[in-house]
Design a protein around this nucleic acid. Sequence first.
RNA 1: GGUCCUUUGGCCGAGUGGUUAGGUACCGGUCUGCAAAACCGUUUACAGCAGUUCGAAUCUGCUAGGGACCUCCA
Length: 488
Amino acid sequence: MEHKLRIYNTLTRTKQLFVPMNEPHVGMYVCGPTVYGDGHLGHARPAITFDVLFRYLTSLGYKVRYVRNITDVGHLEHDADDGEDKIAKKARLEEKEPMEVAQYYTNRYHKAMEALNVLPPSIEPHASGHIIEQIEFVKKILDAGYAYESQGSVYFDVKKYNKDHHYGKLSGRNIEDLLETTRDLDGQDEKRCALDFALWKCAQPEHIMRWPSPWSDGFPGWHMECSAMGTKYLGEEFDIHGGGMDLIFPHHECEIAQSTAALGKETVHYWMHNNMITINGKKMGKSLGNFITLDEFFTGSHKLLAQAYSPMTIRFFILQAHYRSTVDFSNEALQASEKGLERLSDAYARLMKITPAATTTVDVAGLREKCEEAMNDDLNTPIVISYFFDIAKAINTVSDGNGTISAADLEELKSLFQLYLIDILGLRLTASGDSNNDAFKGAVDLLLEIRKQAKANKDWATSDKIRNELAALGFNVKDTKDGFEWSI
RNA sequence: GGUCCUUUGGCCGAGUGGUUAGGUACCGGUCUGCAAAACCGUUUACAGCAGUUCGAAUCUGCUAGGGACCUCCA
C-alpha cells in the first residue's frame, strides 16, 4: 500500500508512519459507549474521528476490521460501595430488566450514529456476550502470576507487574507517584495494594447482573472486556486502538498491563486518542452534568441551545477541528459551521450543473495531492475542509459566468468532492433541489416556474407569496441570474 | 499535591522559524423589483516579559490565565 499516512501514537508521543502488521489488513479497536444513558456530544467525537480513520484507511485500499464494543456490563458505579454496576443501578430505578435498558440505549445510540453518518463497525461485540472469554483472560493472568484471588474477587498485582514491566508507560506515570495520589476506594482491604484493579468482582447478594466463575458469582472488572474482545476478534497483536483521551488512565493503561501479563507481549501498535469537547471551557461529561445529548442537538430541546442543529452540522463542526484539539461548544460556533456546510453543499449542487467549456480558469492541479497530504498528516480534516472552501469559491465564480472550467477539470472536482467530502469525511451534501421523490420535486419546480413567470410580469405579490409560503414550509429559495435554486 | 496539555483577530479554529490559513460575524461595494445567494474589497491576531536568531505567533526560560488525568467517563 503506497501512502504516507502518519498518525500520532500516544505511546511514543510522536507522529509515526502507519505500517500495518498484515497488509492489506488493518485491525482497529475503539472503545464504544456504556449503554446506560443517551449519547451526548462527547460520544460523537470518537465515533466520528475513528469513522473518518476507518473510511480513510478503506479508501487507501486497506481491508479494515473495525471493532467497537458496547459496554453493557461491568463498569462499577463509583458511589456504589456494594459493587453494583451502572446498568444494574439504572435498571432498578426504572424497574426494567438490565438487558432491556441496555438494548433501549443501544438502539438509541445506533440511531444517533446513523444520523451522524457514522458507518457501523465491522463487529460490535457486547461485553455481556463475552463473559467466558473474559474469564479465560483472567485465568491467563492468574497463571502468569500477575493476579491473585481475594474473597471471591480477582485483582491484578500491579506491584509485581511493575517489577517486570512499566505500569504507566502510556499515561506517563510511575508507580511511586501513583501510590502517593491514589485515593481510598471500595474494596481496598481485599487488595494487596491500592493500585491493584479488579479483574473479576464478586457480586453482592442484591446485585442482579452476575455470572458464575471459578472464583465467585460476579462480573468482570471494568478493563477486562476490551482486552478480551479486542484480542478475540483482532488477534493477540493488532494495529490500532482508539478512544477518548480520558480513557488513557486508567482504562488503557490497565489494558496494556492485562495483555502484557496474559500474553507476554503488547497487543496494540498504535494508540490513538481524541480530545474532549468542552462547554464553557469545561469538559462536557456525565460527571459534571453539563452535557447535551445528541437528540437534544437534533431537536434544539436544551436550554443552552439557541436552535436545533442537524446531525451533519454536528459532524462538520467536529471535523472543523483537529481530533487532538479540544473543541469548545457554543451556539455561535455551531451556527458558523451550519453556514459553512451550507456553502459547501450549495457549491456542490452548482458543480453538478456546470456545463464544461473549452478553456479553464480554475486551477485544480495539485488539489488531490494537497488533500491527501493533509489527511496523511494525522488526519488534518480542518485543512482538507479549507481547501474545499477555496474550491467552492472557484465553482461559484464559474457558476456566475465569471469563469470557465474544462470537462476534465470539472470531472476532477466532482471526483474530489465525492472522495474527500462524501466518502472520507462522510458529509451528506444535500444538493439543491435534490429529492428522492420526482413528483414532489416536479411540483416545487412547477411552483417556482410560476413564480418566475410572475416576476417576468412584475407581479411581485404573486412572486413574493410563493417565495414566502415556501419559506414558511421550510424551503430555501435562491434566485440566480436566469432561474432559481431551492433546497429544504 | 503529582503528571501532562493549552493560551491565535467579535466567535470557531489551522499553521510553518522569514509567505493571505479557512469558516463565521461586522462594515463598504457590485448584482437584484425586494430579500436571500453569489462576487469584490476593508477592518480586527498570535496571553505577558525576557532570551536565542539576520529574522519568532512558530525555539528556550519565567510569569499569568485556562484545562485534562490522578475516581466511572468519549
